[in-house]
Amino acid sequence: MPLSAELAPKGVTCDAISEGFISGTNFFGGRLSDERHQALVDETHNKRPGTVDDIAQTVSFLASPGARHITGQTIHVNGGAFTTR
């Protein structure tokens, strides 16, 4: 049974955030070349890297009452670099 199916009856939502390229982190350990950085930005529809705040705002929304009917979902926060449809 998916975790969301188990916990939803108890009022708990279970979602995942799948982030794209996020600037301002040490994910690449300082080994990200300028060319690779630009390639990752070019993959996005909005032509900018994501920020830590983009992820924080998504987490904030998912924890809010406005997201109470969202569960069992993967939320892609990547500027359109990967779309599901």
Results as ranks from 00 to 15, higher is better:
Thr74Ile: 15
Ala5Ser: 12
Gly79Tyr: 09
Ser18His: 10
Ala63Asp: 01
Ser4Pro: 00
Asp34Asn: 09
Gly66Pro: 01
Ala63His: 03
Thr58Ser: 14
Thr74Asp: 08
Ala63Tyr: 03
Asp54Arg: 07
His45Thr: 11
Gly30Glu: 00
Thr51Tyr: 06
Leu62Ile: 04
Arg31Gly: 05
Ala67Met: 07
Leu7Asp: 01
Ser18Val: 07
Ala63Pro: 00
Thr25Arg: 07
Gly72Tyr: 10
Ser4Arg: 03
Gly66Arg: 07
Thr25Phe: 12
Cys14Trp: 07
Phe28Gly: 06
Arg85Lys: 13
Cys14His: 03
Thr44Leu: 09
Thr71Leu: 05
Arg68Leu: 02
His69Pro: 00
Leu40Ser: 04
Thr74Asn: 14
Gln38Arg: 14
His76Ser: 14
Ile75Met: 14
Ile75Arg: 05
Thr51Glu: 01
Val41Ala: 07
Pro49Trp: 06
Ile75His: 09
Ala56Met: 02
Leu3His: 05
Gly66Asn: 07
Leu62Thr: 01
Phe27Val: 14
Asn78Thr: 04
Glu43Ile: 00
Pro49Ser: 10
His45Phe: 11
Ser4Thr: 11
Ala5Pro: 00
Thr71Asp: 02
Gly79Cys: 13
Gly80His: 10
His45Asn: 11
Phe28Lys: 03
Gly29Asp: 00
Phe28Trp: 14
Pro2Asp: 10
Gln38Ser: 11
Asn78Met: 05
Asp42Phe: 06
Leu32His: 01
Asp34Ser: 12
Gln57Leu: 12
Pro2Ser: 10
Thr58Tyr: 08
Pro65Glu: 13
Pro2Ala: 14
Ala16Lys: 05
Arg31Met: 14
Thr58Met: 15
Ser18Arg: 12
Phe61Pro: 03
Asn46Asp: 12
Gly79Ala: 12
Cys14Met: 13
Thr13Lys: 06
Gly80Asn: 09
His37Gly: 01
Leu32Asn: 02
Ile55Ser: 05
Lys10Ile: 00
Thr13Leu: 08
Thr71Ser: 14
Pro9Tyr: 02
Asp42Lys: 11
Gly50Trp: 03
Ala56Arg: 03
Val59Ala: 15
Asn46Cys: 10
Phe21Thr: 01
Met1Glu: 08
Arg85Pro: 10
Ala67Leu: 06
Phe27His: 13
His37Cys: 09
Gly30Cys: 06
Pro9Gln: 03
Thr83Lys: 13
Lys10Arg: 15
Arg31Leu: 14
Val52Thr: 09
Thr74Ala: 13
Ser23Val: 08
Thr25Gly: 07
Ser60Gly: 13
Arg68Val: 04
Phe27Arg: 08
Thr71Glu: 01
Asp42Gln: 13
Val41Met: 03
Ser18Ile: 05
Gly79Val: 13
Asp34Ala: 15
Ile75Thr: 08
Arg68Ile: 02
Ser18Asn: 13
Glu35Arg: 11
Ser18Met: 10
Pro2Leu: 12
Arg36His: 09
Arg36Lys: 12
Asp34Arg: 08
Ser60Leu: 15
Ile55Trp: 03
Gln57Ile: 00
Gln38Lys: 14
Pro9Gly: 03
Ser64Cys: 05
Ile22Leu: 06
Val59Tyr: 06
Ser33Glu: 00
Met1Ile: 12
Ala67Lys: 03
Gly29Cys: 05
Phe21Gln: 01
Thr74Pro: 01
His69Cys: 08
Gly20Phe: 11
Glu6Thr: 11
Asp42Gly: 04
Gly66Tyr: 08
